[in-house]
Design a protein around this nucleic acid. Sequence first.
DNA 1: ACTGAATAGCAATTCAAT
DNA 2: ATTGAATTGCTATTCAGT
Lengths: 70, 70
Amino acid sequence: MKARRHQLILSIISEQVIETQDELVSTLRAHGLQVTQATVSRDIKELRLAKVATVDGRYRYAQPAASPQG
Amino acid sequence: MKARRHQLILSIISEQVIETQDELVSTLRAHGLQVTQATVSRDIKELRLAKVATVDGRYRYAQPAASPQG
DNA sequence: ACTGAATAGCAATTCAAT
DNA sequence: ATTGAATTGCTATTCAGT
């Protein structure tokens, strides 16, 4: 179910502000996917997502656009 | 000296692979700037940098291009 | 306002199991 | 190959000091 979970993660973080991996775990569970923080951490790595500061001084997981560094 | 440190951080992460904040601390010190991890964490937040997975499965601090999410 | 030491909180990995 | 529980490691914040 990894592929579907990955898609759902991308969808979730684009639609709502996710501040921690635990929050993402909760949200995935609310969508019916049973996962733990360990898995979410691996998913974030594979999807190459990142936790970035927002303008209002909080943090949010986001999909960074391809950067110069690659 | 925050402004100069910020500039140096941007320069460093664009030139070399920095995997952890402690590594950035060491590099800044090598450049003559005395800082601690706490400060570097704040700098990263202010500069809105991010720790992203690299293609070869490691992590690296990078400056993500402006993303859709804002 | 800026910073460091210590700590709390969060994320990445290990180790085992499937 | 994928995952979870537990652990280790890293980062963000607090609290105090300047």
